[in-house]
Structures are given as structure tokens and as C-alpha cells.
């Protein structure tokens, strides 16, 4: 029984998250308390969900991309572009509070994010480039484009409807949580209720065999990069709405790395194949909790980076088969006897 629990893909991520939360509780006994103020729920746990929303979004998109054996380095840039274009449109409007203007802005920003995702999809799925290389292009150029949009300035907006997206409340909870929930449900539905999930895992595990089984890998790859772009675009809107401004230079900086980290912590292998959306969400929450903890303890927030570094090392070491072998002192291999014969020439 214990064996089965500890082998579950959520075991390690949840243990780490629980440990982090426990540390917080010990450090500050009121950590778990949630109070109602002005019809809204407040508390550290709510904050973690609220501030973690953009990262969870980006990480959900990244999970699907990584499951196909790819990677998307450009999400940070897409976050910046989408926030920049949305804020630009709103700030140019005569009446910034107009709902239609905000909807247009969101629509255009998401459209642009989809185009960015499509571009990555074309390079990876269409031209057959290595994902890390293909998305590097938009990662480099994208931030330039975002600055181009904002003309190198920080664009500020004073729009209530726009601010609602990232800083509004619904049913006592921050509105952004509902966006995340919706996207998570959509992703889960797409991958578990339709066959897309099976195709993604199939393409990620063995692209050639998938093609020969009749799977349209190209459209699968297009779909995941577009979805990832869309998630990043949404994250960009939430981030810029939260602070009512867009900074083409710094918005979404390091997001690609945090998102990849969340995916890896969640148990999805960077080699593609099996993926775990729930694991990713837990992974993103771990990262956000870590940041919150460090703020709370009173260490300069920049030092989060050092802790993150150790988290990356630890998670990777736990996932590394070689490391586990070295630790348990046994040469355990997950190979069937017959397979040895077949792999001999590899």
C-alpha cells in the first residue's frame, strides 16, 4: 500500500507542498487563517492562488507542449506582448471604462498570442525544427516586439473592467482563480475527454510510430503550441491587469523557466510522453508558495532564486534514475528480460 502511494505521480510534489505549507504554519501560526473582509476572502492561501494564477496558466500550456517532446521558451515573451497590446488598445481609447473596448483589447491580445503559438507550431511541426531552437527565436525577438508595441514605455491604463480581470472578485474569490479553473477544466476536458491527450502522449513518446499509426502529429503539435500561446496570452492579460500597466521589458521575465520548472516538479518528463496536469498545478503552487514564504520570512525576495536552484536540483535528482540507483545501492532497471535482446544494437 505504502509502495503504491509513494509511486503515485503526485506523491512527491504534494509532499513538498505540504512541507512548505507546514513550515509556514510553524513560522506564522496564522498562516492558514482566512478572513472575510468587505465580502472578499483574504488570507495567505488565497494570495498564493491569486498571485500564482498566471504561472499556473502558463505551466498548463507548457505541460502539453512538453508532453509532445517539445518545449516553449517563448512564453515569457508572449506574456509581455499580450499584456502590451491589450494595455495599448485600452489606453488609446477615449473611454477606457467601456466594456467593448476591454473586450476588443482582450480579443486582440489573445489573437496575437494565438498567432505567436501558431508561429512556434509551424516551425516545430511544419518545418521540423528542434523545439528549443525554434522557440528561442520568438523568445529573443518577442521581447523586442513587446517593447516596440509599448514604444519602450510602461503603458498604464485606468480601466475598471480591465482591472477586474486580474484584480477583481467573484463570489468572494479573486476572479483570476476562476480563469485558471476554466482553463484547467478546458485542458483536462480536451486531453481526457477527447482523444487529444492520447495523441499528445503518443507523439511525445514516439513521433514516427505515431505517424505510421495514422495520427496527424502535425495538427497535434500545432494544437499544443497554439494552446500554450493562448495560455501565455491570458497570463499576460492577468498580469498587466493586476497592476494596470504593461512593461514590455520586464513583464513575464523568467516565466518560461518557472513554467518549465513547475511542469518538471509535477512529474512530467522533459522527454515527452506521459503528462500530469494536476502535477503541474501543484508544481506551480510550490513555486508560488516558495516565493510567498521567502517574503514572509523577510529575506530579500531576490534570494528566492537560490532556493529555486536547490529545488530544481532536488527534484531533478529525485527524478534521475541514476541518482535513485546510487542512493538505493541497487542496479534496478525497468527493463523486461526480453527487451535486452532487442535493445542490444541501440
Amino acid at each position: 500500500m505504502w509502495n503504491r502511494i509513494s509511486k503515485h505521480h503526485l506523491f512527491w510534489p504534494l509532499t513538498v507542498l505540504a512541507a512548505l505549507l507546514l513550515f509556514n504554519l510553524v513560522y506564522k501560526p496564522g498562516f492558514f487563517s482566512v478572513r472575510i473582509q468587505g465580502g472578499h476572502l483574504y488570507g495567505s492561501l488565497i494570495d498564493i492562488l491569486n498571485y500564482g494564477a498566471p504561472l499556473i496558466l502558463v505551466a498548463i500550456g507548457m505541460t502539453l507542449v512538453i508532453a509532445t517532446g517539445g518545449i516553449d521558451l517563448s512564453v515569457g515573451s508572449i506574456v509581455a506582448i499580450s499584456g502590451a497590446i491589450a494595455c495599448l488598445i485600452v489606453s488609446r481609447a477615449s473611454d477606457q471604462h467601456s466594456l467593448s473596448i476591454v473586450l476588443t483589447a482582450v480579443g486582440v491580445a489573445l489573437g496575437l498570442a494565438i498567432i505567436c503559438g501558431l508561429w512556434n507550431g509551424i516551425l516545430v511541426g511544419g518545418a521540423g525544427m528542434q523545439a528549443i531552437i525554434a522557440t528561442l527565436i520568438l523568445m529573443v525577438a518577442g521581447r523586442g516586439i513587446a517593447q516596440l508595441v509599448t514604444n519602450g514605455q510602461i503603458v498604464t491604463v485606468t480601466s475598471n473592467p480591465y482591472k477586474y480581470i486580474g484584480a477583481g472578485w467573484l463570489a468572494m474569490l479573486p476572479f483570476s482563480i476562476f480563469i485558471v479553473a476554466a482553463v484547467l477544466l478546458a485542458a483536462a476536458w480536451l486531453t481526457r475527454r477527447t482523444a487529444l491527450g492520447l495523441f499528445i502522449e503518443s507523439v511525445g513518446s514516439n513521433a514516427t510510430a505515431s505517424r505510421l499509426a495514422g495520427i496527424r502529429s502535425r495538427s497535434v503539435i500545432f494544437a499544443v503550441y497554439i494552446f500554450c500561446g493562448l495560455c501565455a496570452g491570458l497570463a499576460g492579460i492577468i498580469l498587466s491587469s493586476n497592476v494596470s500597466s504593461a512593461d514590455g521589458n520586464n513583464a513575464g521575465l523568467w516565466y518560461e523557466l518557472d513554467a518549465i520548472l513547475a511542469v518538471v516538479i509535477g512529474g512530467t518528463s522533459l522527454n515527452g510522453g506521459r503528462f500530469y496536469l494536476s502535477g503541474t498545478v501543484v508544481g506551480a503552487l510550490i513555486i508560488q508558495t516558495l516565493t510567498t514564504t521567502i517574503y514572509m520570512v523577510g529575506v530579500p525576495p531576490e534570494i528566492t532564486l537560490v532556493v529555486k536552484a536547490f529545488v530544481v536540483f532536488t527534484v531533478c535528482l529525485i527524478q534521475s534514475e541514476k541518482f535513485r540507483m546510487a542512493m538505493t545501492g541497487k542496479g534496478k532497471r525497468r527493463r523486461a528480460p526480453a527487451e535486452r535482446e532487442v535493445t542490444q544494437h541501440g
Partner: peptide, 18 residues
């Protein structure tokens, strides 16, 4: 190995894939 099985998937998933 390279053009047939999807190693990460189960027997059931491999059967229904096509």
C-alpha cells in the same frame, strides 16, 4: 521499437491507437 510501439503507453492504449 522505433516505428511500432509507443513505449510510454499501456497495452490497451497501444491497441486502440490506430
Amino acid at each position: 521499437k522505433t516505428e511500432g510501439i509507443i513505449a510510454d503507453l499501456t497495452v490497451r492504449e497501444n491497441i486502440i491507437l490506430a
